[in-house]
């Protein structure tokens, strides 16, 4: 196989990994602050995709679609946090029941509204087409996803380490009581972070749409993948989501190249192994 073959396969893995990072970042953020394993995350992804698609079909603009979908889903997230999860703080079992309940409801709603057929999201005009690499073609949109994922990672990093609100979140993660005592409105912070997590999931839905598609069942599939990434990387760790995403993306790609018959195991077996060796993931805290 020529060198370009390996280069293209590496790019495949990295771009898929970046997509996984977008899915996982919100999940990890919410868990880090609120200790909520948000199962509705899959719905946020799916609804984001459907909203985005509806907007594209009406306006033709990808940017407008991204913004509308993300803010709409963020509002849904805020409502769920304010009126439901708020009252179940630190109670994992009923939290699981609520977030699973919403996953069911949204999944069913989506079939009622958009039907059971798979939908394909068109790519933004700027990024259609493919580049030629030796004898191979490489889709420009995937290169764009790599850049976009990196940009989001940098933005999140800056938000976390370079802004006041990031400092407040970090303080609340470390010690909520102290944060409250310092006058931080932790309750408002929770709502904002949950909304922002939903925003990120919807972003994944719209950006991933042109590659993965929007279809019934995507909510469960994406949720599963998101969990794998977050757990491998370590819950609540931004760095973990990024490296977890890239690791899973590359494992998946090269697993398919070298062990095509074992495609079922290339994600879950390494995950079990990593957890057995490092019980709280690569970058997680005990």
């Amino acid at each position: 196989m020529p060198v370009t073959f390996w280069l293209v396969q590496a790019l495949n893995g990295i771009s898929y990994g970046m997509l996984l990072f977008l899915l996982a970042a919100g999940l990890s953020l919410i868990f880090g602050l609120m200790k909520v394993l948000n199962l509705t995350h899959g719905s946020f992804y799916l609804l984001g995709g459907y909203f985005g698609l509806a907007v594209i079909q009406r306006t033709g603009s990808f940017v407008v679609a991204v913004l509308t979908a993300c803010f709409a889903i963020a509002i849904i997230g805020v409502i769920i946090e304010r009126f439901f999860l708020r009252r179940l703080y630190l109670e994992e079992l009923p939290q699981a029941l609520v977030t699973f309940g919403f996953l069911f409801i949204f999944s069913d709603l989506a079939t009622v509204i958009w039907g059971g057929d798979p939908q394909t999201m068109p790519k933004p005009d700027l990024f259609t087409g493919s580049l030629q690499l030796g004898t191979f073609y490489y889709p420009i949109y995937r290169l764009f996803i790599i850049g976009f994922g990196l940009a989001i990672a940098l933005l999140l990093w800056w938000l976390q380490d370079g802004t006041r609100i990031g400092a407040m979140v970090r303080a609340s993660v470390d010690n909520e009581e102290v944060a409250r005592a310092m006058g931080i409105d932790v309750s408002l912070l929770f709502t904002l972070v949950f909304g922002f997590g939903a925003f990120l999931a919807a972003l994944g839905g719209v950006m991933g749409g042109p590659i993965v598609g929007v279809y019934p069942g995507a909510d469960f599939e994406i949720l599963l993948l998101g969990f794998v990434v977050v757990i491998i990387g370590g819950l609540g760790s931004l760095k973990g989501s990024l490296f977890g995403g890239l690791l899973v993306g590359l494992l998946d790609t090269f697993g398919k190249v070298f062990f095509p018959e074992l495609a079922l195991f290339t994600i879950f077996a390494p995950m079990a192994l990593i957890l057995a060796i490092r019980p709280s993931g690569l970058f997680g805290r005990e």
Binding site: E92, F227, I231, L235, L264, F268, A272, P279, S280
Partner: peptide, 29 residues
């Protein structure tokens, strides 16, 4: 158990999930 019992809470949730997926993969594959 030897693999999963090292973890706790949400990690336990996920490692049991991963292990069961491996079992599913064998039944399927």
């Amino acid at each position: 158990g030897f693999l999963a019992l090292r973890t706790r809470g949400s990690y336990f949730l996920m490692i049991t999930l991963a292990l069961s997926q491996v079992a599913w993969g064998i039944a399927f594959g």
